[in-house]
Amino acid sequence: MEIVLSTDEEHSKLEYSNITIREFILLGFSDVPYLHWMLFGIFFLMYLITLLCNSIIILITRIDPALQTPMYFFLSNFSFVEICYVTVTIPRMLMDLCTQKGTITLFSCALQLCLVIMFGGMECLLLTVMAYDRYVAICNPLNYPLIMNSKISVQLVVACWVSIIPVVTGQTYQIFSLPYCGSNKINHFFCDIPPILKLACGDTFVNNLAIYVAAVAFIMVPFLLIIASYSKIIFNILNLSSAGRRSKAFSTCSSHLIVVVLFYGTAIITYVIPKSNQSESMGKLLSLFYTVFIPLLNPIIYTLRNKDIMVALRKLQTKLSIYRTT
């Protein structure tokens, strides 16, 4: 059945499609205005705790000689990326909760999207590098100092940045090269790929395909490499003769494994599973989980389940107590 538009309808549609959007409106939590100040207090407190915990991890891995190892070098880099990741999203969300406006320029939206994808991708790659570090330490301990020396550790982190930056920049340019001429309301609390593409007027097939390929490359492939590493790790741990050695090996890997499951679980659901199977409310909830809750949980998981970090924290606390009394 063919629908024929009248001349007036065609004219109005043409005029509407020629309007170029210069700014967006982040709806955020506008559907629950009575909860704005409570949400502001909760998210602000969570943001401060996330900054504090990750900053402490960076500090103690720098000043404690016992933590001058590749494992904690990667952990400090991961904590730095976590700080950047939450800083890109939460302060903007807090400001919108205060002003209840949510207006964001096209450039600011593009910049936020670029940084969110970049830091999220870096977390994926760093988690993979950390899994490889644990694989070498447990499966090839005699050659660990040679394979994972300080030079190699720095090169691995640099390689992560070098691989993610051009891909993310290209993705962002491709997304914001599309025409946006309809509604400018983003049903989200930050500029994320799925809600932005819903507002595009042009054909988004190529964009969705590129995003899916990038998601497979930076989410699924690292995830499979982590699974392969931990399969080898678990096999080697089970073959250890000493129960004490098995317990120590499991303790050094369990924290990382918990973080991997939490982070990759939400990332795969958000960016790999087809969006037709996911409502906007569910997408917003998942984004809230991996942009606010997981960065808060990660340093807590690493500190509470890591004996070396707990010892370093006690040393730091003792030094601070002595400094205050003198």
Rank of each mutant, 00 (worst) to 15 (best):
E9C: 13
L199C: 10
S76K: 06
L286M: 06
V162H: 15
L297M: 15
A267V: 00
I193P: 02
H256E: 01
S153H: 07
L199F: 02
I273S: 03
L316I: 04
C181D: 00
F74L: 13
I269E: 11
P179T: 01
A215Q: 13
V4L: 00
P33K: 04
K185S: 10
Y290K: 14
Q317D: 14
L35Y: 05
M71S: 06
F119Y: 07
I268E: 02
F235G: 02
F44H: 02
I186K: 10
P299N: 04
S251A: 00
V259Y: 05
V4F: 02
G102D: 14
R246D: 07
M220V: 12
F190V: 15
L111R: 10
V116W: 05
C253H: 14
I309G: 08
I193E: 15
I258C: 10
C124F: 02
D31C: 07
N239E: 05
N18T: 05
I138T: 07
I268G: 10
N236K: 15
E123C: 11
Q278W: 01
V86F: 09
Y173P: 03
I193H: 02
R92W: 04
E23Y: 04
L225V: 06
S79Q: 04
N149T: 04
L45T: 08
L94Q: 02
I21M: 10
S247P: 01
L113M: 04
N18V: 04
L156R: 02
T128R: 07
V86N: 03
Y290F: 14
P141T: 09
L304I: 08
P33G: 07
F74K: 12
V157F: 15
M38L: 10
I301M: 06
Q155Y: 01
Y132C: 03
G283I: 02
L156C: 02
K151L: 09
S17I: 12
Y85N: 13
Y85R: 11
L304N: 13
I164P: 13
V216Q: 14
I196C: 01
A243L: 05
Q174S: 00
S12C: 13
A137W: 11
F107M: 10
I309K: 05
S79G: 07
N298C: 15
Q174G: 15
M130E: 03
Q171E: 00
